[in-house]
Amino acid sequence: MPGGHVRKIRCVGGVTHDTYGRLLMVQRAHAPGEGLWSIPGGRVEPGESDPVAVARELREETGLTVSIGRLVGSVTRPAASGLYEIYDYECRVIGGLLRPGDDAAQVAWIDLAAFGTLERTNLLTEGLAPTLREWDMLPRA
């Protein structure tokens, strides 16, 4: 890229646990990460704040309405046209019906055993497991 400029694409995600400690996850239906499991999220649209984008993405991908809490952490991942800068927020479900939508092939509450299986079989998006471990945000059940 001219002058070494790298295009940065702002994205958000919602780290959401249910009352049993399971983690809300989606199986991606499209690239990047098609077929892999991750936390729900996506690009911030022009004019959106992070909380508005997180709420929209979770509603579109999972059918759930959430309240947005604290920033859990951020990561940078390669994108075809630059870098994804992903800001992940802690969320709490306040309504809606769980169903896959938009960019999700499947959506589920994942417990620690199922998460371990997804990790061992390489079905998680790149870097997700170590990042969630570092942030102490793995499934708790």
Rank of each mutant, 00 (worst) to 15 (best):
E126N: 05
T16F: 02
A104E: 05
R22F: 01
G47Y: 07
T76Y: 09
K8P: 03
L71I: 02
M25R: 07
R22Q: 13
I39H: 11
T121R: 10
R59L: 07
V72W: 02
L24Y: 01
C11V: 01
V66T: 06
G14C: 03
I39G: 09
G116V: 08
R7H: 05
E60H: 05
G82D: 03
G3C: 05
L128T: 14
E45C: 06
R7G: 00
I9Q: 07
F115E: 15
Q27A: 01
H17Y: 01
V107I: 00
F115I: 14
L123R: 13
R120H: 15
T121V: 08
Y87I: 12
T76A: 15
R70M: 08
V6N: 04
P78S: 12
W37C: 00
T16E: 10
R92M: 10
I9M: 13
V75T: 15
P100C: 02
S81H: 05
D102M: 03
L112Y: 03
G35L: 14
L98P: 08
E45Y: 14
R99A: 10
L118F: 08
R28G: 01
D136L: 07
N122S: 15
W109H: 04
V44H: 12
R59H: 10
H5E: 12
H30I: 13
E134R: 15
L132H: 13
G116C: 07
L71G: 02
D111R: 00
V72C: 07
E61M: 06
G42V: 04
T76Q: 15
I86C: 01
L112E: 06
G4T: 12
V54E: 02
G33H: 11
D103W: 11
W37K: 10
A114P: 00
G35T: 07
T125H: 05
R99D: 02
Y89E: 03
L23T: 02
T125R: 13
A104G: 05
C11A: 11
G42M: 07
V6A: 10
E48G: 04
V72S: 08
H17F: 02
V54D: 00
T62S: 07
S49W: 04
P46H: 11
E85W: 07
T125E: 03
Y87C: 15
T76C: 12
D50L: 04
I110D: 02
V72I: 12
P2K: 15
E119N: 08
L124C: 00
R43Y: 03
V72D: 06
G21L: 11
R22P: 00
L83P: 01
A105L: 06
H5V: 13
G4W: 12
P32L: 00
N122G: 08
G69C: 06
A29I: 04
V54F: 00
G96N: 11
R120K: 14
R10S: 09
G116I: 12
R59E: 14
P2G: 09
K8V: 14
R77F: 11
N122F: 02
A114L: 09
E85T: 04
I94W: 00
V12F: 04
R92L: 10
H30K: 14
I94T: 13
G127F: 08
I39C: 09
L124I: 03
D50I: 08
Y87L: 14
A108T: 05
